[in-house]
Simulated assay, not measured.
Amino acid sequence: MIWIIGHLLAVGIGISLGLLGGGGSVLALPVLVYVMGVAPKNAIAMTLVIIGTVSILGLIPHWRAGNVWLKTAYIFGSATMVGAFLGAKLATLPFITDAIQMLLFALLMLVASLLMIQRSARPKKTDDIIPYPKPVCKYCWLWLMSEGIVVGTLTGLVGVGGGFAIVPALVLLGKVPMKAAIGTSLLIITMNAIAGFIGYWGHVTLDWGLMLSFILAASVGTILGGYLSGFIPAARLQKSFGYFVLAVAALVLFQNRDTFWQWYTPKNAASAKVSLQSRV
């Protein structure tokens, strides 16, 4: 039953990628950790493989429609790849524990969910899926690459594909239309996943069978999501998905609540010891 539930959720991962151009890693990592029982570091590396592979499949219809800007993907993607590799290497250091990675993941999802909800509340004036203001500058390639390094580092560190940050960066800094931003983001997510996975290689244990079955299930969802995108306005899904991501973030924070106590308890113990010594 757990296997079935996990793979049904994997289909949902693909639908999210097909409809919104992102959000897959928000679902993939918690499903692998809390449903399938995979250790967080291993799950993050597996998430990169799953999301990267499924993003390639989701990229195909956008490529055919001419919604992939290769030059922009090269500029932004090259920066995110460097960041993803460095983030993965950072994650393999001893002081970056599983709990720290999951807490960082939850905090990022908390921010992402609030941004999704806020954007969905703005009045829609164009045919764009998500309303954004006009590009904020004329020559933004330097800012684009700087944000790319940050987004890539987070990808490697906590397994987040970065679609929630890549799409607005492409729109605001790269002056890319929304539809092209979604298609281009899938290519950049794939590039991130490759670089991050290389950084984890040799430091984690991978369940190749589980990854393959998840990729197949998510691929079905991606095809279904791409088909449904022609009938379901993604703007209607944005707010609901934002609240769902908020719930996922709350769940992960709750699951890792003991980490806060571990940080807090030694300080209390030290204070109590000092107090006891002073009394003696």
Rank of each mutant, 00 (worst) to 15 (best):
I232Q: 07
Y74K: 13
G183S: 04
S278P: 11
G18H: 01
L246C: 11
G83K: 07
V33I: 15
L173P: 06
T97S: 13
N268Q: 15
K267S: 13
L253H: 04
W63M: 10
A88H: 07
V49P: 05
P266W: 03
M211Q: 02
M211H: 01
I129A: 08
C140D: 08
I215S: 04
G199A: 11
G226F: 06
H203R: 00
V176Y: 12
F164Y: 03
T126I: 05
N67D: 13
P177L: 07
V151G: 02
V150C: 04
L103E: 05
I15S: 08
L104E: 02
G21P: 07
V49M: 14
G23T: 12
V31M: 08
T155V: 08
Q277T: 09
K138A: 11
G23Y: 10
I13Q: 01
V54Q: 02
F214K: 02
A250E: 03
I51D: 03
Y74Q: 14
Q262G: 12
D258T: 12
T72S: 14
A39R: 13
C137A: 06
I188G: 00
V11L: 11
S275Q: 15
Y34W: 14
E147F: 13
F244C: 10
G159S: 10
V49H: 06
S16H: 02
L90K: 03
L186R: 00
I75H: 10
A99K: 14
G24F: 05
W143F: 09
L246P: 05
L27G: 01
P30F: 06
L157C: 07
S113E: 12
S278C: 14
I96H: 05
W69H: 15
D258R: 12
Q262V: 15
A79T: 04
V136P: 06
L19N: 05
G174V: 04
A121Q: 14
P177F: 03
G152W: 01
L107P: 00
I60V: 15
L237W: 07
G12N: 02
A195C: 01
P61I: 14
I189W: 05
V49A: 12
A269Y: 12
Q118T: 14
L246T: 00
F260H: 05
T155Y: 08
L237P: 03
I96Q: 06
V38L: 06
I96F: 13
P131T: 00
D207L: 05
P61R: 07
A180S: 12
A272S: 15
P266G: 04
P131A: 01
N42H: 09
V204E: 10
S240L: 15
A28H: 01
T155E: 06
Q277F: 15
G161D: 10
I130Y: 02
S78L: 01
P30R: 00
A235H: 14
G161N: 09
V31L: 03
T259L: 10
W208N: 07
G163R: 02
A121I: 13
G226H: 04
L187H: 09
V33F: 11
I4C: 11
G52E: 07
V248F: 11
G156K: 03
T80H: 02
A217V: 07
W63P: 00
K71T: 09
Q255M: 14
C137N: 08
A247I: 15
K267W: 14
I13C: 03
Q101K: 11
A10E: 10
I182Y: 01
R64Y: 14
G83C: 08
A165S: 01
C140K: 02
G202F: 09
S275Y: 15
G37P: 05
